[in-house]
Each structure stands twice: as structure tokens, then as C-alpha cells.
Nucleic acid binder design. Structure first.
Lengths: 209, 209
DNA sequence: TAGATTGTTAATCGATTAACAATC
DNA sequence: TAGATTGTTAATCGATTAACAATC
């Protein structure tokens, strides 16, 4: 096992490994070799072994990898068992879609609460999560200390809101607004989901492909 | 200008360039140099110039780039002016969110129609787009020949639906289901939006950061 | 045991950065 | 003109692939 900085390229492949292993696991597959996993995922066996070697030794010569075990190991590397607690800010159509359909528990996140400005939504529940008014946000975060916030709010309020939440202790942002967020505070991470970028990539490919 | 295969790394930076240039354009900025754009975007001036050189010469020595012009050029490279026409399949919370909030026109896509199985939704309109029943999908696509489909449907129907739509002429898929789609047919492109992957990346970072 | 497959080192390939002549 | 900044070539850096000894 090499102990060094993990490259972004490797980090971005980890969730994909996890998805494939989870799928194999659910199908009851017991073992898999790097080469057959590579075939499925359309990458080289070498790359899989090289990637995994950043984190430890999970296989066995002549056998390959135990699916359940490797799935659990990668889940652990990804922090799935770290008990993250999150809040959803903005329960418009998108926030609603996430609350209703996204399986947060499966990837180790507990949804503590949701917040919205709309009086019609406040005090209603979606899938057991209570929607609270925005003006209770600061107090709530200060008291219950969730560590992640999902931002499904209008663009213009995103950065000031993030700044406020960072002060209150939020350390991760799953950002669905179309602006890139940033902060000077160390140890805070943003994951920006830019819908526009992926649609434009598609546009590029069908235009030139 | 080098004429060769454009790498994925470059392609994935193009939408981000476009976003920044669009922002500068809207702010009325007239010119920008590769170094000041690099500062804003937190990448090197060299990389910007190298990337752009794949597609042509858009700057001027001693001056830099004209913002409006470069924005238009990159938009053109991305195929924004190609008159893409798309349909949305599945008008649950997510499909609804896209229909209601996403500015398709701004990136060169016209929303022709939407489809859903729910009788309650059929024949209603969202932002001027009529929702049609799923059993009219094949006939509609065959007749009106849209080229892109947005998939916001349950996982298990995604691949067979995609296969059917490819037969009918769809060439690009903006796929929001959590499965990776594929096809043998050449010239068909999938852009998978894996929410799970980005949330897991965030989990990794806050767990180790 | 023999065959299969790992983890790791070395080789290759590609992407990023630096440098600079050309020139607006 | 002098200063600024491009487009491009060369140098560097990092990521992917290949190869193979170790070993289950």
C-alpha cells in the first residue's frame, strides 16, 4: 500500500466502483477478478488494481476479490459509515424530488430536517422529514450540528447562505445552484452539481460526434 | 490550430469556460486576458490558451480576448446554435423541476414535449409544454423527430426505453436514472447524471479532508 | 500441485505547465 | 514605439498501462 496523496481521478472513480460492486452484491455474486470487473466497467484491470492499492490490499492471489468485502471496504473509504447528518435547504421541485426519491440512507446520510420560506410547506412532512421555516435555520444548525447542507435554493442567495452555514459548523455542501461556491475556511467542501455542464457536454457530442 | 482528437479533459472544461464567459458578458466586461480568466477560474493561463488552441485562434496579442466573441465561439463549439429539440420522459418531481426551472433555451435546446404515464398529468401544460401519455411516445418521436431525450423515469425502464428511442432516431440522452445506459448503435451519446456519485465524493472529502 | 490473479514496479502515454518568439 | 499577451513548441509532471514475481 502506497501512502500518498490520492488523485482526483482516483477519487472520482470510487463511487463508480461502489455502484458496480453494490449491484454485483445485490445480484448475489460472491467473487470477482479485476479483469472481469474491468470488462464490465470498460476500464483496464490494471487501473482497478492500481486504484485499490492506494487504500490497501483487498484481494487474494489466484482468487480475486470477495464482492461483499470489497463493497464494504470501498463504502468505508467513501465514508458511508460516518453517520453524516444533512439538512435540505429549499423545498421547491428539486428539493422535493430529492426528499421524495433519493435514497440518502443508502449512502450513509441521515436527513435531519428541511427548510423553506413558503408558509404553505412549513410544518408539513415529506417521508418523515419535517419542513421548517427558514428563520429557524440558524438556531437549528447551531443546536443540532448537522454537517452537510443540500442547497436547492435560488442562485443569488446561495453564497451568503453558505457563508452563514459555514460559520455555524456545516462542512459539506451539495450544491444544486448554478453558481460555484467557495470559502476561505479550511476543511469545508463543495460538490457542485452543474446540470448545465452535462447538458452542454451532450450538446457538444451530438453536434460533433 | 492543431487538428487532432479533442481529449475528454478539454471537453469537460468547455462548459465551465462558457459559464464564466457568459457571466462576464452579462456583467458587461468587454475584454479579458487568459491570465485574469485563469485567476478567476483557478486554472493556469497556459491551460486556457492550450485548450482554446484546439479549436482556433480567438485572441489577439497584447489585448487578450473579446468576451462577447469568445463566448459566442465557445457556444458555437458546444453546439448551442444547432437547434436541438428534446423531449422529457417522466414528469415526476425531477422532470417537473427541470420543466419548471431549467433554462433549456439558454443552452440551445427547445423542449418539444413531455411524456408521463399518470392520467392526472396528461394534457396539462407546464411552461407551455404539453404533457402527453406514454403510449403516444413512439408515434410522436417517429413523426416529429426530436434528437434528444431527458430520462427522468424509474431505473428499470430506462434501458429498454432508450433502445426503443434509439431505433426511432434519438441521438442523445440526458439520463437522470441511476443506471449507466449503453448501446451498440454508433453516434448515440449518453450523459449520465449520477447524483449518488457526487454525494459520495462529498462524503469522501468531508470524511478525510 | 498447477492455474489464476494479485500488488507493485517499470514503461508508456497523455495532459499540464513553462517558456518565448511573434505581433497587436 | 513599448508593453502586453497571444499561439505554439518544448519540458515537466502525472496518470494509465504493461509486465511479472509473489502466492493463494
Amino acid at each position: 500500500m502506497k501512502k500518498q496523496k490520492i488523485s482526483d481521478a482516483v477519487i472520482h472513480r470510487l463511487p463508480r466502483y461502489y455502484r458496480y460492486l453494490d449491484d454485483l452484491y445485490n445480484k448475489g455474486v460472491v467473487r470477482i477478478s479485476s479483469s472481469s470487473l474491468g470488462d464490465k466497467m470498460d476500464i483496464t484491470a490494471s487501473q482497478i488494481r492500481q486504484d485499490l492499492s492506494c487504500f490497501g490490499e483487498f484481494g487474494q492471489q489466484g482468487y480475486g476479490y470477495n464482492v461483499a468485502e470489497l463493497r464494504a471496504e470501498i463504502g468505508h473509504i467513501l465514508g458511508i459509515d460516518n453517520g453524516h447528518r444533512l439538512i435540505i435547504i429549499g423545498v421547491g421541485h428539486l428539493g422535493h424530488a430529492l426528499l421524495q426519491n433519493f435514497d440518502f440512507e443508502k449512502v450513509g446520510f441521515q436527513v435531519d430536517s428541511a427548510f423553506d420560506v413558503s408558509p404553505a410547506l412549513v410544518d408539513t412532512q415529506i417521508r418523515g422529514v419535517t419542513i421548517r421555516p427558514m428563520d429557524q435555520l440558524a438556531e437549528y444548525v447551531a443546536r443540532y450540528q448537522p454537517n452537510v447542507a443540500v442547497l436547492t435554493v435560488p442562485q443569488n442567495v446561495a453564497q451568503p447562505l453558505a457563508d452563514q452555514l459555514i460559520d455555524l459548523g456545516i462542512r459539506g455542501f451539495w450544491n444544486f445552484t448554478n453558481v460555484e461556491l467557495s470559502t476561505e475556511v479550511p476543511g469545508v467542501f463543495f460538490e457542485d452539481v452543474h446540470f448545465v455542464d452535462t447538458l452542454l457536454t451532450l450538446s457538444y457530442r451530438i453536434s460533433r460526434g
